[in-house]
Amino acid sequence: MNIAMIATEKLPVPAIRGGAIQIYLQSTAEIIAQKHQVTVFSIRDPHLQDDEAAQGVHYIRLDEEHYLSALTEELKKTHYDLIHVCNRPAWVEPLKQVTPDSKFILSVHNEMFAEGKITKEDGETCINDVSGIVTVSDFIGNTITQRFPDAKDKTRTVYSGVDLGAYHPAWTDQGNIIRKRMRERAGLEGKKIALFVGRLSKVKGPHILLQAIPEIIEKHPDAMLVFVGSKWFDDDKVNNYVRHLYTLGAMHLNHVTFIKFIKPQDIPNFYSMSDIFVCCSQWQEPLARVHYEAMAAGLPIITTNRGGNAEVIEEGQNGIVIDRFDDPHEYARIINSLFDDEEKRKQMGGSGRSIAEQKYGWQRVADQLLDAYQTV
């Protein structure tokens, strides 16, 4: 098959600036390209060529401001058997008009079919135009089929994945080396580290985690909360919310550290140096990819019951789900319970790594996408 995969207008592919959709496209495209022709369209970036081949994938990068119109022009030049559009249901109709003989697959990574995001008429048109819809969680699938019941037969969940080879649990030789080196560099030897990775935005809930610090350090004076991320991917500018987080953190300088944007290839090292991972999402999260990363790194996960997050948690095995997601006392209670029990942390981390190896490698994601492509 000759396949086109279309990224959103937000970030480039490969994922040099991060982004769950961009990582998803790059990782699956490289595997699918071993047996099929694959072209990935994304926006231009000064650090990438506009047209190049890498890892068997043809990349075409277009102007961000006129991205959709540029896409329509590009699709006129080459016939693609299948076109995979990421997270932009409204784009399907104009793209299908210029290549009506191509089959379309839509992958949905957020609540793109919700009221306020797309009209009933446009949603029905998109569902009629696509041969299949793949979603990153059952939660997202339900947001589509509840409003558009006719989409049910076309919709399936394909959970995202992680590069298992890039993450090294602390019990491995390489993971132990990374852990020691990272802790020495940061002056965190002997600390119990709880890690947050993600955008510093209110919906991600880092302020709730910061409010839990007094209870945590009362019981564990050697605790350290490490926040990796910025307000928007590689944008380290400080807005009012981030400034508020810094103010909260400054009240506990010996127990909080903020690390701004980290290149995606360097993220795994921060998991290796940590003891537990916390996702404190306050919004209906589609299913944050940090869960896959934490499992691959062998960290026990604390997450919230928001959206699809809990779908990859086997309670008490690889993680713990917080129902009172906006209660700092709950985070403190569960973090303290894990800091109290090193053996439990090891068992949960080991289970998480095993689950990731069984279910969440990129090969499985690519295989399921190909099955979706070939059965439409």
Rank of each mutant, 00 (worst) to 15 (best):
I31L: 15
N128E: 12
V238I: 14
D129S: 05
S27F: 00
I216T: 06
K192V: 00
R324N: 11
I144Y: 09
S137G: 10
E343S: 15
K237Y: 09
Q34I: 11
S354Q: 12
D340S: 11
D235P: 06
Y271A: 03
F41K: 06
Y292I: 00
P206Y: 02
E357T: 08
H291S: 01
A250R: 12
Q174N: 10
I334M: 04
S230A: 15
K77H: 05
G198Q: 04
K260G: 12
V197S: 06
P46M: 07
I334P: 01
I60Q: 09
R289E: 10
H168L: 07
V278G: 10
I355V: 07
I140C: 05
F196P: 05
V321M: 05
D122W: 09
Q317K: 14
E30D: 08
G307S: 00
A372D: 02
E343M: 13
I267R: 09
S281M: 00
V130K: 04
A294W: 00
I133S: 02
W283E: 10
G18W: 04
A20T: 14
Q368F: 03
Q97H: 14
L75Q: 01
N87C: 04
S42C: 03
N128G: 06
G316F: 13
V256K: 03
V228S: 10
D101V: 04
D326S: 13
G316Y: 10
V92E: 10
L25G: 02
L71Y: 01
D266Q: 11
Q358Y: 05
R88V: 06
R147N: 04
W171R: 10
Q174R: 09
G161K: 09
F196H: 08
N336P: 03
R179F: 09
E73N: 15
L25E: 11
P14S: 09
R179Y: 10
I193V: 13
